[in-house]
């Protein structure tokens, strides 16, 4: 993304096989060994929970207790766990999965479009109260969204949107971080002169966005969509407050509901005829966590560039 400024010297060093300053310094081999060991140890520690989560549904409930947590059961185990999940409440897991997909997709689309437009307008126009918009956006960006959850519920209740998915979709579509990213992107990647000359050529402001800014926005759009997805796919608190009916639940809410209403991990619930045990719960958990993990792994650079928007050099 061109929001980043590249240090020309660094780049040229990279090309010729950069030797970092730190590498040239004298380092004690033992301390280097200790540091490397610690870094590797923490990497292994970081992988353990995900390895368990992904492998657990391949085994049945008994195997989970007596076989190694790192042993793979069988592929049939995943199918069985999914079949059992579908027994629960007439296959409501499918509804939760579908809800998660369509709520998140709607949020990603609305949030990305509104944030990109806002960033463009703040960077390319001389509208009034521009600074006020920018400061409000920065404040909203740094205050956690859950801080306003109770007043938001009162507001949604007044307009009869409680227990309506649009309450969650609209609230979560406010994307101040995205608007700020878009503003930084357009400010640093499109020179003001380009807009000026397009205006002189008779381009109106809509065309300025659609013909000049938008074609140059592919990296920005992917960055905005990435952050909108990871922020909303596993969101729990807002849907928990706004959507009390289980048919409107998302996967994370559904997982919480499974904790509560099955004996899988809740000793307080007696035996039921529904075969929901730990492998089934783990499969529901993996359906939430694995898509985010994939997004993180393929978008590492986006994460760093986005969070340090505009101020990082490579």
């Amino acid at each position: 993304m061109s929001t980043t400024q590249t240090d020309p010297k660094r780049k040229s060093l990279k090309k010729v096989g950069r030797v970092p300053a730190s590498k040239m310094r004298h380092q004690h081999p033992f301390s280097t060994f200790l540091v490397t060991t610690w870094l590797v140890f923490f990497a292994i520690l970081s992988l353990i929970p995900m390895i368990w989560l992904v492998l657990a549904p391949s085994k049945n409930d008994k195997e989970l207790s007596y076989r190694s947590p790192y042993a793979f059961g069988s592929f049939k185990g995943y199918l069985n766990a999914w079949k059992h999940l579908k027994y629960f409440d007439n296959g409501v897991i499918g509804t939760w999965l579908f809800n998660s997909i369509w709520y998140t997709a709607s949020i990603v689309i609305i949030a990305t479009i509104t944030a990109a437009l806002a960033g463009f307008v703040i960077s390319a126009s001389n509208i009034r109260f521009k600074r006020t918009f920018l400061i409000s956006t920065l404040i909203m960006m740094l205050v956690p969204p859950v801080a306003l959850v109770i007043p938001l519920f009162v507001e949604m209740d007044k307009v009869h949107l409680v227990d309506n998915p649009w309450s969650v979709i609209l609230i979560s579509s406010l994307y101040p971080f995205g608007a700020f990213l878009a503003y930084i992107y357009y400010t640093t990647s499109i020179p003001a002169e380009l807009y000026e000359s397009a205006r002189l050529d008779g381009c109106n402001d809509f065309k300025l966005f659609s013909k000049i800014a938008l074609p140059l926005s592919t990296p920005l759009i992917s960055l905005l969509a990435f952050f909108a997805f990871i922020g909303n796919w596993a969101n729990y608190f807002m849907p928990y407050v706004m959507l009390p009916s289980s048919e409107h639940y998302t996967l994370p809410l559904g997982l919480g509901f499974l904790f509560l209403s099955t004996p899988a991990i809740n000793p307080g619930v007696g035996a039921t005829s529904v075969p929901i045990y730990k492998p089934e719960i783990a499969l529901a958990g993996a359906l939430i966590a694995v898509p985010i993990m994939i997004m993180f792994l393929v978008s590492q650079k986006r994460l760093i560039r986005g969070m340090l928007a505009g101020s990082i050099k490579e």
Partner: peptide
């Protein structure tokens, strides 16, 4: 670095389970 980022996908309800 890839390994370090993996636990970030385990949050909220999934973190409680894990």
């Amino acid at each position: 670095r890839m390994a370090y980022i993996v636990p970030a996908s385990i949050s909220g309800a999934v973190a409680v389970l894990v």
